[in-house]
Write a protein that binds this DNA or RNA. Structure first.
Length: 582
DNA sequence: GCCGTTTTCGGCCCGACTGTTTTCAGTCG
């Protein structure tokens, strides 16, 4: 077993122990170990072979034995035992907001409820409300929670789908006879939530390609296998307390048909309808196989040729939602979208001074290795005790360490920032004399999520209007497929941000991707500057910037719309200007 | 279950909110 698999099992053990009512610290120990393994560099198997597992902080004698068993044999009797004792439905029940291990256990012990279906029924019959420790409101919340989970249903996050797609592509590249190969569908359009994976290949002979596809490693079920289309299921087991199952389709066409099929299967459906309409107005017919008119088929070697044949500019996949891109492509007024390599640095990163896992220096080195010129450190502020937020005294110490690191590097700059909590009344978590010591301030909300729309809007408007605030962090607080955004009038927030020259972050963490692409588009039209931040809590998370660029591209953003496309010296000037109130 | 030590047992992040209670347990971040 590799690092990720072991970490996943340790995490699952923690959950199962919680459901058994185990000592919470014992459960936490398993979670800590899982996290340590996930974030370690190098292979777990090498440490096992060297007998050096206990050198990892959070792994002692007992876990060493268990991890060794997992790495070597792939099995652990203790884990199998736990799983056989605890119904998997209980793990699913944990996903309901406001329901934790104690409540799940009570429901199971007292009512025999061991899955969401039985829970829903018990709530509807009013049996849950009469349980000790439960009441009418809890019962109602459970019902609402189940409804929310139903919506989240069979969809997965972009990063999860991408990982599966990449391994399928890698497998397919080993199959003989493939000429061209691309991912299409919503994954190619880089939507933040994906329902299934669409892959397109061209080949002279589809059959062996299909055969190769359905026998790739990781395929848990073959739904269909034909000459042009095959469908498989990938089952990753329980991930984050949810069964992670995703469908993947492969279509194989002749190489002549490839551009048309690619365009068709990339979608969106609405975009396809719009360009088919345009083809019609040219007396042409466009489908997944060809573009054809009275004089016969129009030869197209790639997608660009299709758009050109319709007198349009090439429309990047991220824009294909029929929200104005067709008209813009006709008028040759499409934006020149921002690209990953335009990003020269970033601002919202955590270190082990608060709740990150890496040191200042490790984060800086990792950023430099990614080709960035600068890195902004924004650890949590003092009131966020659970994340080890920095007191003014520790802020001072951290800034001294940053000065020292900066003096040793000529080709890289660390900017001093903070992710300062926005308190319930909209005040900031540091007084002005502390705020002024930072190069920049990211203001974010981490508490009191359930204020009314008016309260929350006033709170955030007040924060973005504060002269010391440089940018707003994760604007709506949503967690992809996990938590709804809090109630806030983003329009009002954006207008205040525009008025005060405060930027709004695109949080590039694939769990957040907040603000989303639609809000991005709106922000740009309101004249709000944007900035792409990874919210990295570990060195490898800095690369999440790419997901933020995806959001920005879907939001029609160009290089000039995003602060961290500026080189270090110009960014320093921009931050100083904002600080000076210019 | 880990860690550290005034070294083998006690602390482990902790405060706020919610809905349930009648003084507090569970959940969340």
């Amino acid at each position: 077993m590799d690092n990720d698999q072991v970490a996943a099992i340790l995490d699952e053990i923690a959950t199962l122990l919680e459901l058994q009512g185990e000592n919470p610290f014992r459960c936490q120990a398993y979670r800590n170990a899982a996290r340590a393994i996930q974030q370690m560099e190098g292979r777990l198997s090498e440490l096992v072979a060297a007998g050096k597992l206990t050198e990892i902080r959070g792994i002692g004698e007992t876990l060493q034995e268990k991890i060794t068993a997992l790495v070597i044999s792939g099995r652990l009797a203790f884990y199998d035992d736990l799983k056989s004792k605890i119904p998997t439905g209980l793990v699913e029940m944990l996903r309901i907001p406001a329901i934790g291990p104690k409540k799940v256990k009570a429901l199971f012990d007292q009512l025999g409820i061991d899955d969401l279906v039985k829970l829903k029924q018990a709530c509807e019959e009013g049996r849950v409300a009469s349980l000790k420790g439960f009441g009418a409101k809890t019962q109602q919340k459970i019902l609402e929670g189940i409804a929310f989970l139903g919506q989240a249903g069979d969809r997965v996050r972009l990063d999860q789908a991408e990982a599966v797609a990449n391994s399928l592509l890698e497998g397919l590249r080993g199959c003989a006879g493939i000429i061209r190969l691309e991912v299409c569908g919503s994954l190619r359009r880089r939507k933040e939530i994906i329902r299934d994976i669409d892959i397109l290949a061209s080949s002279k002979d589809a059959r062996p390609v299909m055969k190769c596809f359905v026998s790739l490693p990781g395929v848990s079920q073959v739904i269909g296998q034909g000459d042009t289309k095959s469908s498989i299921v990938i089952d990753k087991g329980v991930v984050d307390g949810r069964r992670f199952v995703i469908n993947a389709d492969l279509r194989v066409v002749d190489d002549d048909q490839f551009p048309f099929a690619l365009n068709y299967f990339t979608g969106s459906k609405e975009h396809n309808v719009a360009i088919r309409g345009r083809a019609q107005s040219y007396g042409l017919k466009l489908n997944e196989y060809e573009l054809v008119g009275a004089k016969g088929p129009v030869r197209c070697r790639d997608e660009g040729d299709i758009y050109r044949a319709l007198d349009m500019d090439y429309v990047p996949p991220e824009l294909r939602e029929n929200t104005g891109e067709v008209e813009a492509a006709v008028a040759h007024r499409l934006p020149k979208l921002i690209e990953k390599q335009d990003i020269l640095g970033t601002f919202h990163c955590h270190t082990n001074w608060s709740d990150g896992s890496a040191s200042l220096e490790e984060m800086a080195m990792a950023a430099r290795k990614l080709g960035l010129q600068y890195l902004g450190i924004a650890d949590h502020s003092q009131s966020l005790k659970m994340a080890n937020g920095l007191t003014p005294e520790r802020v001072h110490q951290q800034q001294a360490e940053i000065d020292q690191l900066n003096s040793r590097m000529s080709d890289f700059t660390i900017f001093k920032g903070t992710e300062c909590d926005i308190l319930p009344d909209g005040q900031l978590d540091y007084p002005d004399d502390v705020l002024v010591s930072f190069d920049y301030v990211v203001a974010s909300i981490h508490t009191h999520f359930n204020q009314t729309l008016e309260e929350m809007t006033a709170r955030i408007v007040r924060a973005v209007s504060h002269p010391r605030v440089t940018m707003l962090g994760h604007g709506t607080g949503r967690l992809v497929l996990r938590r709804e955004p809090y109630k806030v009038d983003m329009e009002a927030v954006m207008k205040a941000a525009a008025k005060h020259g405060t930027r709004i972050e695109i949080n590039a963490h694939p769990f957040r991707l907040d603000i989303d692409w639609l809000a991005c588009k709106r922000a740009k039209s309101l004249g709000v500057g944007l900035v792409i931040n990874p919210d990295a809590h570990a060195t490898q998370e800095i690369a999440h910037i790419g997901y933020g660029v995806d959001v920005a591209r879907r939001g029609w953003l160009e290089k000039s719309d995003v602060l961290n496309t500026l080189p270090a010296d110009q960014v320093a000037k921009a931050l100083a200007a904002k600080k000076a109130g210019k």
